[in-house]
Design a protein around this nucleic acid. Structure first.
Lengths: 342, 342
DNA sequence: TTGTACGCGTTATCAA
DNA sequence: TTGATAACGCGTACAA
């Protein structure tokens, strides 16, 4: 059942010329008679010839393929990023090979391995939550292999990163809650080892400080998995056990925010009257739920697109490593909806 | 900056043996002294040798890579399918190369072309909305090239397809609305050229018939783009202009259902008291919106997983074309929530 | 037990 | 203007 591809040799044999002639004719090289060119092309067309990209890759030592390593495909934010990546890659003639790690470090490593064996030209990476040491990347970086990190990025000096301004996003969200009169703001944070989590936490804390409040460490609760179920349980627990009742939740992602909302409703609290809620990412459903959820939007598509542009520029040596500022930070935007306005 | 990969030759040179010896040692071939094997492996390890998958592909004429062609990545259902695909492919040692067509036929064609040049072993396809003729696939099918279609599938006799039972999903949804006492049920349908749209429409019509109602063609409205904005406009128009006011909407996707819900709310109608609404796909947000949206759930992950299993079995000749029933139909499930219960 | 030689499809180099 | 040959990295049939 193997599909038999027409090769340059087949054309050559048919036309009684050498394969080099065919190759040159197809590539419009100088020094080939128009007559030959015509004949070759006609036949190639007729025989439905397609160059074998694999052979080219072997010869050139590169594949016009980039790898993408992400934690999860089924995630609004990541799917948006992938979309941006795919668009730019396609437009510039690159293929995209995709793997998800399911937040597992082993899979991250093995993915990198297979991709390298496949001679990918570069890779776009967003870490797994398990990833705390970066040797499997930094060793490549040191060799000059093109890697661009996005969203979840490492703290390595020579890493090129594309992120959003998590700090200011969180800062603005918290400030907004304060301006609305909420005072006991709980932060449902993300995994501690991720820079984005730290930045969002820092934004939250600084906003409090700048408005004359002292951040209470017990008001920062880690929601590791980032699902609505998880945060619903956590928030439920908070509402029952905390001596001082919170009057707002700033979640580091929208799912967690939804969980908080459900828990509050279940506890008979009204949103936004009794409790204000702000999420992060601006998933599609934010405007659909009731009350609609305020959220910090991240330009997912642009992150993917920008990261890919930088990676391809790097691969094609249009830019050098040190030329890029090494990190691009895209702005977030706080979208204020009903869940946080009273 | 090109990363220089260690080859079998490098190891051979270092060890003063031939490259075939190295190759055999690494592959644990019989007839190689244990001593040599040990030495080769140690050095390979030390030099961080990785086989060049491209060279292997060229030699074998296959790449252990499958292609995935889908309309859009940023789509809950498709991202779920991708996830299923990726899991199975990874588990069986295959790579996934991904392209989205953005619903454009030209991109569908060009994607197939590049993938073929790259010697993919097979391809998983869900059509673009623009695709009405299938020559670019059927010509491959005729040559025996492994293709498995999912979700949006063609009406070709020898095509292998993985779908859900759209008919029964739509039938159940409509029946449920009827049982709840809704009588004037509008169907917000999908693009006419897609089989899934036709099947869902058929299910809707048959349910009406079986319950003694005559389907009114003017109660079937096509929502081509499938966004909430689009359907919101359409439903708004319906509510204003229809002489007979509808009391329910069965949408062929959840976004359209949400649009309908918003339009109804805006018109002062209560859901579910005045108007019942059921969607299709069971996106994440269904349980988060208010009222929560009843929807027909499709097992996206399983669709992807099953389609990939069949494709890989086909590639590895574990099954023959005619052995598979040619089409796998997975069951849908109606999830009844608040939007359709009064 | 190991080595030699060839082929996979293509292009670059050198020769004619 | 064209052809022959080598090379990319690997596996394998055949020879030693």
């Amino acid at each position: 059942m193997k599909i038999i591809q027409v090769t340059i040799k087949d054309i050559a044999r048919e036309l009684n010329v050498s394969s080099s002639t065919v190759s040159r004719a197809l590539k419009d090289y100088p020094g080939i008679s128009d007559e030959t060119k015509r004949k070759v092309r006609e036949l190639a067309d007729k025989m439905n010839y397609r160059p074998n990209a694999i052979a080219l890759s072997l010869q050139k030592g590169r594949s016009y393929t980039i790898g993408v390593i992400i934690p999860e495909v089924v995630h609004f934010f990541f799917s948006t990023v992938i979309s941006g990546i795919e668009e730019v890659a396609f437009a510039r003639g690159y293929k995209v090979i995709l793997t998800q790690t399911n937040e597992k470090l082993v899979r991250e490593k093995s993915s990198i391995d297979t991709m390298l064996s496949n001679q990918i030209d570069g890779v776009l990476v967003s870490f797994s939550k398990e990833t705390t040491e970066f040797d499997h990347f930094s060793s490549l970086l040191d060799k000059g292999f093109p890697i661009v990190f996005f969203d979840r990025v490492p703290d390595i000096s020579n890493a090129i990163t594309v992120t959003v301004n998590d700090y200011s996003g969180a800062y603005e969200a918290t400030k907004h809650l304060l301006h609305q009169g909420y005072r006991k703001i709980v932060h449902l944070s993300g995994p501690n080892n991720l820079k984005i989590s730290k930045e969002r936490l820092r934004g939250y804390q600084d906003a409090l400080l700048d408005h004359g409040f002292t951040p209470d460490p017990s008001f920062v609760i880690e929601c590791n998995r980032g699902t609505d179920d998880e945060s619903q349980k956590i928030v439920n627990e908070i509402l029952q056990t905390f001596p001082i009742k919170p009057d707002a939740f700033f979640a580091n992602n929208d799912m967690a925010a939804v969980g908080a909302m459900l828990a509050c409703k279940a506890a008979g609290l009204r949103v936004p009257e009794d409790v204000g809620i702000v999420g992060f990412s601006n998933w599609q459903f934010c405007s659909m739920i009731d009350p609609s959820l305020s959220s910090v939007s991240q330009p997912g598509f642009n992150i993917g697109a920008k990261a890919t542009e930088i990676l391809l520029d790097l691969i094609e040596k249009k830019i050098q490593l040190h030329e890029t500022g090494n990190s691009v930070v895209l702005e977030t935007e706080l979208l204020i909806r009903k869940s946080s306005v009273r």
